[in-house]
């Protein structure tokens, strides 16, 4: 019937679907190693969207994203090293499906360096909502990309590690793996010390700040509150920003 030139020309209007179309629809996934065991990771064309530990990955992804999930043969560039080292130069993230507040919270958490911890109130302030400390906890409990957005580095103001998406034991393992001295932090918390100041620089820091870790014992002063440190003449560190939280 394609002897008819009109029909042949109409048939010629059919085209092949572009190669990149599937990536706009489906996510890809792969299992990768991490310091807390094997993780399932899913990503879209925009970046990594979901990191899951344990059973029920497919069902959890489907419930959360409503998008087809196809197996990949290799992980996105940079994913495996980012999970292993906890350094921030990981793969791009796809946080499109999240609300503005949760996205702001995750961005704030991304600023916490490897080997350091910050309280929930600090994250709330950095996300631009200093009063929303509890909401920060909820947002982190629903962090779709743990490890890549290091919510394990957010701990309670009283020195306890607090909750974690993959459970408190995983939080502890991750912090120890990146060199946080949990025994020392625990010891300071028992003495009600949550800030460390140096009388040579006149600066007060969070105890895990790399500036605080350099203070020699002879020049180190512990404080329970930032207000007390300020009264004693110390200014908040410009690196770890202990002043970034409601008083």
């Amino acid at each position: 019937m394609n002897d008819d030139p009109l029909l042949a020309r109409l048939a010629g209007l059919a085209v092949e679907a572009p190669a990149g179309l599937l990536d706009r629809i489906a996510a890809r996934w792969i299992a990768v190693p991490s310091p807390i065991g094997e993780l399932s990771v899913a990503w879209t064309a925009r970046g990594v969207a979901y990191v899951h530990q344990g059973d029920g990955f497919t069902a959890a992804f489907r419930a959360r994203f409503g998008r087809p999930l196809l197996p990949a043969t290799r992980p996105p560039a940079g994913l495996v090293p980012a999970l292993r080292t906890g350094r921030p130069s990981g793969p791009a993230l796809d946080l499109e499906e999240l609300g503005d507040f949760q996205r702001d919270v995750l961005r704030a958490v991304q600023a916490i360096p490897r080997g350091e911890v910050r309280p929930y109130a600090w994250v709330a302030a950095r996300a631009g909502r200093p009063g929303a400390v509890r909401a920060v906890g909820t947002a982190l409990a629903r962090n779709p990309v743990p490890l890549l957005v290091p919510c394990h580095r957010v701990t309670r103001a009283d020195g306890a590690l607090g909750e974690y998406v993959f459970g408190p034991a995983a939080k502890q393992r991750l912090l120890l793996a990146e060199g946080v001295d949990l025994d020392r932090l625990d010891g300071l918390a028992r003495e009600r010390v949550f800030y460390l100041a140096s009388d040579t620089t006149g600066v007060v820091c969070f105890p895990t700040c790399h500036n605080a870790r350099r203070i020699t014992p002879a020049h180190r002063h512990g404080f329970r509150t930032l207000g007390a440190a300020r009264t004693a003449g110390y200014r908040p560190c410009r690196t770890c920003r202990p002043d970034l939280q409601a008083a």
């Binding site: 209007l13 085209v15 497919t58 489907r62 087809p68």
Partner: peptide, 23 residues
């Protein structure tokens, strides 16, 4: 399997869906 089935569904009909959408 829903996801494997989707891959089949897409493979079988992507061109007709895209062509129709384009025109």
């Amino acid at each position: 399997d829903l996801d494997g089935g989707f891959a089949e569904l897409y493979g079988a009909h992507r061109d007709v869906v895209f062509s129709t959408a384009l025109r």
